[in-house]
Design a protein around this nucleic acid. Structure first.
Length: 179
DNA sequence: AGCACGATGCTCT
DNA sequence: GAGCATCGTGCTT
């Protein structure tokens, strides 16, 4: 699912305006089998949405200032999720620029895109399949050759066997042609 | 271009 | 009380 979400369009309605971008970077988190996952040690108040059905948003707050958006992908009781790490802004770019307040990069980081689109914990548990407020829709096809994989970011606390899994996926168009 | 660090608040032990 | 699925600034190369 982390691969398949690349190229799809993340849409947010904020103050009646449509903001969107093409998902360009994701990470997979595999629940109880993955010590990098918030769900590794079982259900807690924070991570309970991940244990619910797929298609819902798991939004949490870290570092005292950043919200992170995940898509729950596992069936009920299987707490798999995909972290949305970056989007390529498409619609509402002026609003996004204003919301980012001139800082570096518009949506090239999980905290940045949440700030840009006004995504916070109020959307934790939001149904992403209903086409309201926040959802994901078809975008464009992504060739396998244009996907780069690498280790996940910021999970030094995970067990060694999970730390170096290439579960980060980036859509890098034209990568195949550059070499 | 690449570190180091502080900000800042919540979550879980 | 420790540490966090980060970002921006400010400094060094």
């Amino acid at each position: 699912m982390a691969r398949r979400l690349l190229g799809t369009r993340l849409v947010r309605i904020l103050d009646g305006a449509r903001l969107s971008g093409i998902i360009s970077e994701t990470e997979a988190y595999m629940g109880g089998d993955d010590s990098a996952s918030h769900a590794f040690r079982g259900r807690t108040p924070r991570n309970q949405v991940m244990f619910g059905p797929p298609g819902y948003a798991y939004v949490y707050f870290v570092y005292g200032m950043h919200n992170m958006l995940n898509v729950v992908t596992g069936e009920e009781d299987i707490p798999w999720a995909v972290l949305i790490r970056a989007i390529e802004p498409q619609e509402g770019i002026d609003t996004i620029r204003t919301r980012r307040n001139g800082r570096n990069g518009l949506c090239n980081g999980p905290g940045k895109l949440c700030q840009a689109l006004g995504i916070d914990r109020q959307l934790n548990g939001w149904d992403l399949t209903r086409g309201q407020r926040l959802w994901i829709e078809a975008g464009h096809d992504v060739a396998e050759a244009d996907i780069r994989t690498s280790p996940r970011v910021g999970i030094d606390y995970a067990l060694p066997e999970h730390r170096n899994l290439h579960w980060r996926f980036e859509y890098v168009p034209e990568q195949s042609k550059r070499r």
